[in-house]
Design a protein around this nucleic acid. Sequence first.
RNA 1: GGUGCCAUCGCCAAGUGGUAAGGCCGCAGCCUGCAAAGCUGCUAUCCCCAGUUCAAAUCUGGGUGGCACCUCCA
Length: 466
Amino acid sequence: MFIYDSVQKTKREFIPLEEGKVSLYVCGPTVYDDAHLGHAKSALVFDLLTRVLSANGYDVTYARNITDIDDKIIKKALTLNQDIKEITDFYTAAFHKEMDALGVGRPDIEPKATESLEAMHEMMQKLIDSGHAYATKDGDVYFDTSSDSEYLSLSKRHQDEDDKQERVASSSLKKNPTDFAMWKSVKDDSLTYESPYGKGRPGWHLECSAMIEKHLAQPNTAFAVDIHGGGADLLFPHHENEAAQTRCSSNHELANYWMHNGFVNIDGEKMSKSLGNSFFIKDALKEYDGEVLRFYLLSTHYRSNFNFNSEDLSTAKKRLDKIYRLKKRLFGLAENSETTPFRDELLKVLSDDMNVSAALALIDEMISNANETLDTAGKHKVLKRETISNLAYINSLLGFGVKNPFKYFQFGMNEDTKERIALLITKRGVAKKEKNFEASDTLRDEILAFGVTLMDTPTGTFWEKV
RNA sequence: GGUGCCAUCGCCAAGUGGUAAGGCCGCAGCCUGCAAAGCUGCUAUCCCCAGUUCAAAUCUGGGUGGCACCUCCA
């Protein structure tokens, strides 16, 4: 298994801290709004990573946090006059539902900030005791970046540049411009959390460091976790600050391998809250099967920036369709999971820093070969067995082809329409049998008007939604 | 301004020294009552210039053009 380390900027062979085991931590969503395609991309990338690691025989412990303490949440609570927990519960549930639709497995551990305050206080206290952090008279607690000689080693920035980039001059109580808040005092009693330093809320960076230390870190290892992942934008300042806190409060570095996934743009433009062009997962799911979205978002290498547009999405669907059509041809045959050369190759390319493109090329080649043989020698038993095994492997490793192939092609069609189509197909079948092609073609036009295609096969006539 | 990434067929996209994967689109054909689906065949020398090398899309230098981070953000 090889992984590109985005801090060392090189592809490295993956060697776990503890043989046979992998600890993986990924920054999860802040639950104050609907999740957008960027959240989907990140979740999908690391879902794939856990599948590939598992297929390589590793026992994976995957943690992805839920940030349920945040200024944006507090702001929303005030604006809507709602309880904080009401908001975070709502968006956490929505997030889970959308991840399910995308075929993203639940992490083994899903820590919430609200349930990890004690761990945060512990870490903060250690940092204060060791002189790496300080409390101000306002009740804020800051990390002293000048106390960490390794600060900025992740993002490889230069201190002097960050000095002049300071734009918020209000925090004059900071010792250094780059010092960041671990605890911020908040006056409004209804929106605060208790701490030994007064009421307030924890800083975002502290949440992740503390949760990793509490849930994943092993004692006496050089790193708290094997792999830390997240979106490319998180490298600085979020991961830099996380790493500093962990480094200075414990005897290990934060992560052995850092993985950052590329961004999702919409029609060439960055998707962001400030631009107001966020593309929510829930909206995309209205038009496309979650698996199509999964296939599309995973079809480009995880480190590349991804330019979302509907043309490419429908191209991706066509490619996924081919998997399902082959599955249809083999529908009802006994399942098996025998080893095949294809399986070995597929795992091999995915184990090389998740080369999905190469994997898809292998899949298309496998499909093409299988179809060709089925066309010319339909009773080829060995090939059928192998193909079923191959499809099952694609299913478990990539999460493609999970559904019933007939249902897949009926996405978004209501029962009433399905019945009417079935009736017309029966009528057309009769006309065809009587060689009344004029009538059968008229019936076909009626069927196509429902936005479907028709295909006559040896085992019957089937339709697919276009 | 600082730091970093990228530039491969009409479109999407692999490939990091050994002579250009795959998909979509297009064209030709097989199959089909006709279609659809499936299958077969055809379609690029890798932004520009210079260099290193027996050999470069792949390494080095210089251009040009995109983009990201530095501010909440996956």
